[in-house]
Design a protein around this nucleic acid. Structure first.
Lengths: 348, 348
DNA sequence: CTGAAAGCGCTAACAT
DNA sequence: ATGTTAGCGCTTTCAG
């Protein structure tokens, strides 16, 4: 800080000690461990601290190897995804709903590339700026679990398949729900189902695609074209849909890897003069609040963004308290059947 | 941290000093001010630091009154708004797009009430955990500007009317655009225009309402019912719309304080058998990505969420570097004319 | 230009 | 049960 502080100086532990007529050490013990002081002095110290409005200095504590009570969220994506992606805002929301009850804060950092990403994890943790990490967007050949293990950093991996690392994992299992989507397509008489995938380097995108593929096989359908460059955004979904429509193997149903992409698809389908679900059945993934408000309401798979955040944060916090974390927590994303996927009796 | 760290101990300034054959003080000077050492020793020191992979300790720096390079964002709303509100994700996105280029991180904290809010600001700043604040959601009789002034904390107020505090302000000016919305309603032959307001304690909500009211007067229209409890959410907009429809002074046009509320309104209007814009003309506020994808595409006023974040962060960072900030920055939100507001010639 | 030394606020031995 | 003391890693005087 360069500018002059107006406020009076904040009280230090010495001030409290003086006021309570004890030593600094006594204050530290009384207020931290709660032991090593008689009940009466402890009370006197507590009083003095309250009267002075004393709070421990994070910095001084950190210098002594104490934690600051923060968890880190390092995101290697463009900051713009906060604007377009359905996951992060909800996820953050889940984290905050847990942290706001505790004395914790979230430190967020968006990084542009893998090098910066690694350096940021290391720096933040080595300096005890954060106590642990919530790791998202696990990629194929992701170096982060190994690095965090080496650092000895507590971490919880969120939104990736089970056992994708040896850190505790919180997974959103959508196999059954995706199967339900495809089953509905089959029941409605569709034969060819396309898939618009998000980022093909992300483990969750790969898993969604695999579930789709398995279900398509199971119901004896034809896997339609897979468009891989949707990027989970509205615009990406629109472009991918154009490619699907231009394909030689034009499907009559599309399973999108995100609701946003499906909604982008809606506008392209409409422009092409196709009605949903009559001419093209559609299903998304995420169940964003908006899915039920578009026309027609979108069939989708609930992705429990918020729970991913809150459960992940809860587990991380418990780990920091020394508790043994559950190695794997699975949340189940149910199917939200709505009009966009058509009705069982209808034949396209 | 309880668990044992695997990684080798990180190097300290003493290690660097030893390696470079100088004193700790020399290292500090060389690497910070850049003065007080000859060019050659400075280079030698820099070398040693690089070889050792040394990084300064945030904690030790903070203990010496240095800044950590973080800016604080304290939000007194339910963490759920991240999930439902269009503003925060974009806003955060704007902040991060600036910070990710600098050596800064964002510290976010959601607080439940005013007391915690004040305590959090104070604590975070007094302990130099953050260098300054971005203040959003300014309310009527908001105590924060006064408190921050007393603390001597650098801050930028974002999204509030100009001169609503003596801190630098970044404002989104929508007067003209809202006027354009109402003018369109007038040209389409409407006589009564309702307004669905967000939180009536928020300065920005009050301002939107005022602009709407002034424009309605200017064009000789009748102000329809004002519903005050939309809360900016889809569900809130739906409920508010039900009340508007139940009103004795049923309007033929509604100006919503947010797109999300307007979209919530869409579903209620549809259920009531009303078509947009024929039976009810609609306009929103925000221009969220989705606005152009709903049916019919939503006329709205662009609220520059991201720019509010990036410009606010930029100004705050410059202040921290000692620069004099512009007392007021105004972004202009343009009108996005789409189908939901009807056509000029049409008479309802 | 450079080294030595004090001290930021706190914790954690170690005495008493 | 309590006080004393030595640092944590760094910045910043103050001497030389």
């Amino acid at each position: 800080m360069t500018s002059g502080n107006t406020g009076r100086k904040r009280p230090t532990i010495s001030d409290v000690a003086r006021r309570a007529g004890v030593s600094k050490g006594a204050v530290s013990r009384a207020l931290n461990t709660g032991t090593g002081t008689s009940a009466s002095t402890r009370e006197r110290i507590r009083q003095a601290a309250v009267e002075l409005g004393w709070n421990p200095s994070y910095a001084a504590r950190a210098l002594n190897g104490k934690s600051l009570g923060t968890i880190g969220l390092i995101v290697r994506r463009s900051p713009e995804i906060l604007d377009f992606d359905a996951f992060f805002p909800s996820f953050l929301s889940g984290i905050e709903s847990v942290l706001s009850g505790e004395e914790h804060a979230t430190v967020i950092r968006f990084v542009p590339d893998e090098r910066t990403e690694a350096a940021t994890y290391e720096r933040l943790f080595n300096d005890q700026f954060v106590d642990g990490f919530l790791v998202t967007d696990l990629r194929t050949d992701d170096g982060r679990p190994g690095m965090l293990r080496r650092l000895g950093a507590p971490a919880v991996v969120v939104g990736a398949p089970e056992n994708s690392s040896d850190f505790p994992t919180v997974t959103n299992d959508s196999r059954e729900a995706i199967r339900g989507v495809v089953r509905r397509f089959a029941e409605a008489g569709h034969h060819r189902v396309a898939h618009v995938q998000g980022d093909p380097h992300m483990l969750h995108a790969i898993q969604r695609r695999r579930h789709w593929e398995q279900a398509v096989r199971e119901f004896g359908l034809e896997p339609g074209p897979v468009e891989e460059h949707g990027g989970y955004t509205i615009a990406g979904g629109a472009r991918a849909t154009e490619r699907v429509l231009a394909s030689d193997e034009r499907p009559t149903a599309i399973f999108y890897g995100s609701d946003l992409m499906a909604i982008g698809g809606y506008s392209v389908l409409r422009e092409a003069g196709l009605t949903v679900p009559e001419d093209m059945a559609v299903a998304g993934f995420d169940d964003i609040p908006l899915a039920s408000f578009v026309t027609p309401p979108l069939t989708t798979v609930r992705n429990r963004h918020r729970a991913l955040g809150s459960v992940g944060a809860r587990i991380l916090l418990d780990m920091l308290k020394g508790q043994e974390p559950p190695p794997s927590t699975v949340l189940v994303g149910e199917l939200r059947m709505r009009e966009s996927s058509g009705r069982p009796d209808h034949t396209p």
